[in-house]
Simulated assay, not measured.
Amino acid sequence: MYLDKFKLTGKVAVVTGAARGIGLATVEALAEAGAAIVVITDMNADLLRGAVGAMTAKGYRVEGELLDVTDAKAVQRVHDAIVERHGRVDVLVNNAGIAISNHPAETMVDEVWNKVIDVNLNGLFWCCRTFGKGMLERGAGAIVNVGSMSGFIVNRPQEQANYNASKAAVHHLTRSLAAEWGARGVRVNAVAPTYIETEMNAYVYDDAEMYRHWVGGTPMNRMGKVDEVASVILFLASEAASLMTGSIVLADGGYACW
């Protein structure tokens, strides 16, 4: 009874920004849980082809779609194409995101602020709005947004007011959509990870001071791994989390405790 709740048998899932890192780990988690198809979206064509090939080689049913989430019309086109092929989308994971750090607020230029907000907040909303509308029409669906512990704390030593603000907004957007859509069958939750071992964060190993702050500020005394975040996403996407909506689940190794 209980283990079955974690399965996604027959579900159609979409993961944005999924050609590597947390996104690709999430694709594998959803596919392993029995999803009928997982659509990998990314704006990098080469990475997308590689991700589809890697997952297909493991025996998972996946497809690829080029998508820049900041383009609302492109989001609609991709949604419509997936629905035309598969009839619906049951699970949406909004993973696409960027960070541009080490820009003090007083000298941050408009371009740096806008780029992060456009991807992390606007793009995520375009996807929630478009895919969520289809879910509401069917009266069922699960959306999982990838937020960050940076929506709860202010990171150090890097200055990144743009990123922190975008992720705090993602968390409250998650709650807002959950409140609007909960009675209509669509659950919306978020995961808020700590620093994760990904290509985007690899630079920290060359910066002793930053690494000391990142790991030294974490009670578990380590960075997280992509599969650890993907596991939380799988839980939130599944019926095991059927009573949860509007939840922001910290997966931060205890970082926010201090």
Results as ranks from 00 to 15, higher is better:
Ala161Ile: 14
Asp110Pro: 04
Leu48Tyr: 06
Gly132Trp: 05
Met1Pro: 02
Arg187Val: 14
Glu137Tyr: 03
His103Met: 07
Leu136Ala: 14
Cys128Met: 12
Ala168Trp: 02
Thr194Met: 09
Leu124Arg: 03
Asn201Asp: 12
Val93Lys: 02
Val38Trp: 02
Ile248Phe: 05
Leu67His: 11
Lys225Thr: 13
Met220Ala: 06
Met223Trp: 10
Val154Glu: 00
Arg85Ser: 05
Leu243Lys: 12
Ala192Pro: 14
Asp118Ala: 12
Ile248Arg: 05
Asp252Gly: 08
Ile153Pro: 05
Val249Lys: 01
Glu228Lys: 07
Ala45Tyr: 09
His79Cys: 13
Asp4Leu: 05
Glu180Trp: 06
Ala169Phe: 01
Thr70Gly: 06
Met223Arg: 08
Ile153Cys: 03
Arg212Asn: 14
Met55Asn: 12
Thr194Val: 04
Ala208Tyr: 01
Phe6Asp: 02
Asn201Glu: 15
Ile82Gln: 05
Ala18Cys: 01
Ile117Asp: 12
Asp118Leu: 10
Asp80Pro: 04
Ile143Gly: 02
Val154Ser: 02
Thr218Asp: 06
Thr70Pro: 13
Val39Glu: 01
Arg20His: 03
Leu250Trp: 04
His86Glu: 10
Tyr205Phe: 13
Val170Trp: 03
Tyr2Arg: 01
Leu8Arg: 10
Glu137Val: 07
Gly123Met: 08
Asp4Gly: 02
Glu197His: 11
Glu197Leu: 07
Leu3Cys: 02
Arg187Met: 05
Asp42Lys: 02
Ala202Phe: 06
Phe125Trp: 08
Glu197Pro: 01
Val69Ala: 03
Arg88Phe: 03
Asp252Glu: 06
Ala57His: 14
Thr41Leu: 03
Asn102Val: 15
Met108Glu: 07
Met108Leu: 15
Val154Pro: 01
Ala99Lys: 15
Glu239Pro: 06
Lys133Val: 03
Val215Gln: 07
Tyr163Arg: 11
Pro157Ala: 10
Tyr203Ala: 09
Ile233Asp: 03
Ser242Trp: 05
Gly253Ser: 00
Ala13Phe: 01
Val215Glu: 07
Gln76Trp: 04
Met244Val: 15
Thr56Met: 08
Asn114Arg: 15
Ser176Met: 06
Gly53Cys: 13
Phe235Met: 07
Arg88Trp: 07
Ile196Met: 07
Arg212Ser: 09
Asp68Trp: 01
Ser247Tyr: 06
